[in-house]
């Protein structure tokens, strides 16, 4: 973990309101697990004041670069979308615990399920799994056709299915509809996306091992402020907790209440 001014290599709009920001900095050498995030200070001034947690989409140690993908939505991400090549961005990272690649053995099948802006961290995960000889099946859900990104990149790594809510592209409906329709099963399932999707995957039991990446509003991003706390499941005391930022954001299904 370090705080560093990273240089913008590129900042491209790759789908409707979706931006791919590539940065260069020494912190890439500390990035190992897929599913970790960086805490981004988008402005030098007071508004917005807090950092933005954004997951790491790909790591390129050879070139000293990493990529984050975000949706331009509020004030912070709108400022971020304006960053030009050569500008410096204040980044704290890498933070959190990512997806356990070691839980998938070579020749096993991993199902990667992403929803919307939860898709990005699965890309680095897919790369690392494939490198290890794990077969990946990618199921990616988006709101509509214009929101789809990285389909061809995922397709290079494994079987890839797209679902859109309006059905204009890919399977109509949710990621769970694709899994049912295609009778997909695997040894392990990794997911990142909206909470209702994670809940559905947690109860469905599509694979014996399931890992979910959670999202929560954060303050410090390092575990000190207790803003992003969640309950531990099956805790009779009610006091047990996990911090999404520093214990997560990835948890084994059933570990915390979502």
């Amino acid at each position: 973990m370090r705080k560093e001014l990273c240089e913008v290599v590129s900042n491209l709009c790759i789908a409707d309101s979706i931006y791919e920001l590539t940065l260069s900095g020494a912190m890439v050498n500390e990035m190992n697990e897929p599913g970790q995030f960086v805490h981004v200070k988008v402005s030098n001034g007071l508004d917005p004041m807090l950092r933005r947690p954004i997951s790491i989409a790909s790591i390129n140690k050879d070139e000293g670069k990493f990529t984050i993908i975000y949706r331009k939505q509020g004030r912070g991400t709108s400022i971020l979308a304006e960053k030009k090549q050569g500008e410096m961005v204040d980044i704290l990272g890498p933070l959190g615990n990512g997806f356990p690649v070691e839980e998938a053995a070579p020749r096993e099948t991993a199902i990667l399920v992403g929803g919307g802006i939860g898709v990005p961290p699965l890309y680095e995960l897919a790369k690392q799994l494939v490198n290890k000889g794990v077969q990946v099946i990618n199921i990616l859900g988006f709101q509509n056709e214009s929101a789809v990104f990285y389909e061809s990149k995922f397709a290079k790594l494994g079987e890839t299915y797209i679902a859109t809510v309006d059905g204009a592209y890919g399977t109509k409906g949710f990621v769970t509809d694709v899994i049912t329709e295609k009778s997909i099963n695997g040894d392990i399932l990794y997911s990142c996306g909206p909470t209702p999707m994670l809940r559905a995957l947690e109860t469905a039991g599509y694979a014996p091992k399931v890992y979910l990446s959670l999202e929560e509003r954060m303050g410090c991003g390092i575990g000190a402020c207790f803003a992003c706390v969640c309950h531990v499941k099956d805790d009779p005391s009610g006091y047990a907790y996990k911090k999404v930022c520093s214990d997560g954001p990835v948890f084994r299904a059933g570990e915390v209440a979502i």
Binding site: L50, R217, G219, F226
Partner: peptide, 24 residues
Amino acid sequence: PRFGNSTPRVAETPGGMLNAIGLQ
């Protein structure tokens, strides 16, 4: 021990933030 309040526990405002951790 205290768990504190439910999330969201933080919200932002120009030049500041609101928190309601609840003494966790």
